[in-house]
Write a protein that binds this DNA or RNA. Structure first.
Lengths: 199, 199
DNA sequence: AGTTGTGAACTTATTCACAGCC
DNA sequence: GGCTGTGAATAAGTTCACAACT
């Protein structure tokens, strides 16, 4: 669903009031029927013969995937990736914002990154009191599970995990993994064997 | 397959000479039968009653997915994400290395990042002559397609794309997308509705 | 006994194609 | 005429369960 939301964003910006499943689907590289099926799972949002009202559908999708309200997230790990994520603007259009920053390194604590002060990881305990239930985990593999446990204890229920491991979390906590090396390692398979072998 | 390779890496490091599909599968959070099926697509690698030889299987998987030789990649876009990727060490264990760096920004050109000199994007043309057939695209959305075209022209056949769009490339070029915002935007769906709504 | 490789059963996802609505 | 929503058909992926092997 988020991908449709982004597609709609594009059409809305272009000034289109309506869009067909054909147009919207092709903008995100899938078949129109697929998109209609996906939407139909949640209800009927279109008008036969006309299509979808871009703004209305966007609002409806936001409501379905709980992006109808802005949300704050915590970022743990202010290394290179963490800092890159702080400066990243791609979350804005989904109403997501990194509002708390944590690191273990004492030298980093107190420093400002994008107007957000790096806090001691030990102060992580009461995120839920600050209205934060989402977290991005950008720490080394060796620290990931330990910090995931702390996040769960702090009330976090959704984790975007960049560490190359399967976190163990309670049933009611959702983890989504992004494993950059793994994705990159898939590419050579599609190359002719031995092409570009170095050394 | 790359995920099994990583799992094997772990077992080899632990000093295990053999591993069963059960153990290996659970280390990567899948069912044993799934793993055996996946492997069986490429051949028979195990010994009934015994399991798999960790080193041998790793080498065989590397050969299957063309990771049996070290490979070089170009990184385009030396913004925050690009620099984070340069410092990232997760590629090493797959024999992948960023060996060329490009940016559009004249002020950045010539600067060293991790012992690699940032080159002018206009010098991108002959990557294949340098033995580079893989690229990581870490540039803003607006530049992504244009640079993808250049990469293809330069002989690149595999692209890891961080821009939130579907690149159009020739059939023989493989693109793998990593869309961080999209993945993050999936999380709130699993949260109770309106929990943590800010403002 | 322990484990693989695999056909068969099951589940899930995708695509087709068309009735019904605008 | 154009487009949606959806049942039916197809395809793809997963899991089971067991014969065959060490």
């Amino acid at each position: 669903m988020p991908v449709y939301l982004r597609g709609l964003h594009f059409f809305t910006e272009q000034g289109h009031k309506r869009v067909s499943s054909k147009k919207l689907a092709e903008s995100v590289n899938i078949k129109p029927a697929q998109m209609r099926k996906d939407l139909s799972y949640f209800g009927d949002f279109g008008t036969p013969g006309v299509g979808y009202d871009t703004k209305k559908l966007a609002e409806q999708i936001r409501s379905i995937i709980h992006l109808n309200v802005p949300r704050k997230a915590a970022l743990v790990g202010c290394g290179n990736l963490g800092q890159a994520l702080m400066k990243y603007t791609g979350f804005d259009s989904f109403g997501l914002k990194i509002a708390a920053l944590f690191d273990k390194d004492k030298r980093k604590i107190g420093r400002l990154v994008q107007n957000c002060k790096i806090e001691d990881i030990r102060k992580i305990s009461a995120l839920s009191k600050r209205g934060i239930f989402l977290a991005i985990l950008a720490v080394p593999l060796c620290a990931a599970q330990e910090i995931a446990d702390k996040l769960v204890q702090a009330g976090v229920q959704g984790i975007l995990n960049f560490a190359p491991c399967q976190l163990r979390v309670p049933r009611n906590t959702k983890v989504i993994n992004i494993d950059i090396a793994l994705d990159f390692a898939r590419l050579p398979y599609y190359l002719p064997k031995n092409i570009g072998a170095s050394e």
